[in-house]
Design a protein around this nucleic acid. Structure first.
Length: 573
DNA sequence: GCCGTTTTCGGCCCGACTGTTTTCAGTCG
């Protein structure tokens, strides 16, 4: 039995959902939710921690009881407390509570008084009108449930790639700036924290007249549906399916509102708890001592009252950033301008669209000092991979082009496939002639975890491999990472001096933020690359930089922030 | 169920909006 952290987290989450419907102490519910979140993003596997007899109670959100429950789940794959609860509360009720207008309390009433156990039952009592006999269920709610039941094939928490909503967000912000009396428009939420996906857009508008802004907003041509509209708070769904929540705030509250709507929820709750400790109150209007507003105009001012440095939005996940801000040890996060070159790019020699010269020119125009040409190796037939012979020709061609270039260098490189057994798809004698060897997995994603890990470790230990490309193979929203022990991969990479790539493709962003931080902490050298297949894709580097910032990365942690002369030294192993 | 500059009990973030109410509960973020 090998239990993944995600399974432990799912059990805790379900426990929280069912306890909530049962009407349990809300703080007990929250304890399970907090624990689920902590477990989900812990890089080490709890299965391993239990095996090593680690002190689970030392972890935040875990006390005596939950430590025992984790041990039970790791040992059996089940949590008996949940199994027991499921006998009393049908787990399908959780789906009901996800419907708009229904929460745990109303679901409980439906179950207790009308025996509603699932969507089918709900449809029955809505259609028969029986639901209207319950206290608290009036005609409006009945109607909105009827609509929800018609509309759903569960549009449940669809998330959008950050890169996919940027255009729409810009258009919307520009439109809102035209509303009467608007001083500023800022997109907060996970968008501002630069999360890889966003569930909705949180838009903050500074204006005196909320009503005018609200009216202007709901008239936006891309609004498909208005969910609710007040004078300071409006929520709509755009035609793309993206939900947008808008809040209008006065100027003197801007900092507090920005802090609140940027989140994350865990981060703002941690700050509010700090306020409570000081007998203050923090809300979206300001930081208050009694009735006195003691801060609120800017985020900087509020953090300052707590004795904290300003925490960059990318770090606001309650992963230790508050303690670091107190000690003055926040990282000096990397900027896009720190990047001196790109170490993963394709040309029309394999599956790219641009020539060597075009790619070189585009990179040079970006102000880069170097660009590594990493066309594919032969194993993947569909991409016209280069065999040793064609790669030799490309080396000659790159040498020829480099002679003409001034202050810029094309690096001779390859993206070589890591075969199923961990060997490489090209012989050593050709790899030796290259400046950089990026090794990646493009096949056999379904190997068992141990085999996949061994395969990767073998590539990392190959002395000619400089970088592991998109190390987990995930495609966000399409496929998860292959089963692999990233802790061992990180350890091996640190020991071997092999770099790990942060791939900037918006649907890869591989490594993810948590793994990036773990790699950085282990002393792994990182590379931020675009995997560009055309000149226009070199621009995607900003997404990789955003992801790196979420992983607490500084410029010095990233190899391709160095000038070429230093790059050589760093890549040597 | 966790946690402690309020330490082993008694707290636990805060407010807007809606619908169904006649003073407020539930939901949502």
């Amino acid at each position: 039995m090998s239990v993944e952290n995600a399974e432990v987290a799912a059990i805790f989450s379900e426990m929280a959902d069912l306890l909530e419907i049962e009407g349990a102490n809300p703080f007990r519910v929250r304890a399970y939710r907090n624990a689920a979140q902590m477990v989900r993003r812990k890089p080490q596997r709890f299965a391993d921690l239990v095996k090593e007899n680690a002190d689970l109670e030392a972890l935040p959100t875990i006390g005596e009881d939950l430590a025992e429950k984790i041990a039970e789940i790791v040992a059996t794959g089940h949590m008996s407390a949940l199994d027991d609860l499921k006998r009393e509360v049908p787990s399908e009720l959780v789906d009901l509570a996800a419907l708009p207008g229904l929460g745990p309390k109303r679901v409980k009433v439906l179950y207790d008084q009308l025996g509603v156990r699932g969507l089918k039952d709900l449809r029955r009592v809505v259609e028969s009108g029986e639901i209207g006999t319950l206290r608290g269920f009036g005609p409006k709610l009945t109607e909105s449930l009827a609509v929800a039941l018609r509309d759903t094939p569960s549009k449940a928490e669809k998330r959008f790639l950050l890169a996919d909503v940027e255009g729409e967000a810009d258009t919307l912000a520009d439109y809102l700036r035209e509303a009467p009396g608007v001083e500023s428009v800022t997109i907060a939420g996970s968008f501002r924290r630069r999360r890889e996906t966003v569930g909705d857009l949180d838009v903050l508008v500074v204006a005196e007249d909320g009503e005018a802004v609200s009216a202007h907003f709901v008239a936006f041509e891309k609004v498909a549906k208005t969910l609710w509209a007040g004078t300071t708070k409006v929520s709509v769904v755009l035609r793309s399916g993206l939900q947008v929540d808008l809040r209008v705030v006065p100027r003197e509250s801007f900092g507090a509102a920005l802090l609140y709507f940027t989140g994350s929820k865990a981060h703002t709750i941690a700050l509010r708890n700090m306020a409570v400790e000081r007998k203050w109150k923090l809300n979206e209007y300001g930081l208050f001592s009694g009735d006195d507003r003691i801060a609120g105009k800017s985020e900087d001012e509020i953090y300052g009252k707590f004795g904290l440095e300003l925490i960059p939005p990318e770090l606001r996940e309650d992963r230790g950033e508050i303690a670091a801000a107190r000690k003055g040890t926040l990282p000096n996060l990397i900027h896009q301008s720190d990047i001196r070159g790109d170490l993963h790019a394709h040309t029309d020699w394999s599956d790219g669209t641009a020539t060597l010269e075009q790619m070189a020119e585009a990179a040079q125009e970006r102000g880069y000092a170097y660009l590594a040409i990493t066309d594919h190796s032969p194993h993947l037939g569909v991409v016209h991979g280069l065999d040793a012979e064609r790669l030799t020709k490309q080396i000659v061609e790159i040498d020829r082009i480099n002679k003409r270039l001034d202050g810029f260098t094309l690096l001779k490189a390859v993206e070589v496939d890591i075969l199923k057994d961990g060997t490489l798809d090209l012989p050593d004698d050709i790899l030796e002639r290259l400046d950089i060897v990026v090794a990646s997995i493009h096949s056999a994603f379904d190997l068992p975890r141990d085999a996949q890990t061994e395969r990767m470790l073998r590539a990392i230990d190959h002395p000619l491999v400089t970088v592991i490309g998109h190390p987990t193979g995930r495609r966000i929203g399409k496929r998860g990472p292959y089963a692999i022990d990233m802790e061992r991969v990180i350890g091996a990479a640190a020991k071997a001096g092999c770099c790990l790539e942060i791939n900037s493709q918006p649907d890869r962003l591989d490594l993810d933020d948590g793994t990036i931080k773990a790699a950085k902490d282990a002393g792994v050298k990182l590379v931020i690359s675009t995997d560009a297949h055309g000149t226009e894709m070199l621009e995607l580097i900003r997404h990789g930089v955003d992801q790196a910032r979420r992983g607490w990365v500084e410029a010095r942690d990233v190899v391709n922030t160095r000038p070429l002369a230093d790059l050589w030294k760093l890549l040597k192993r």
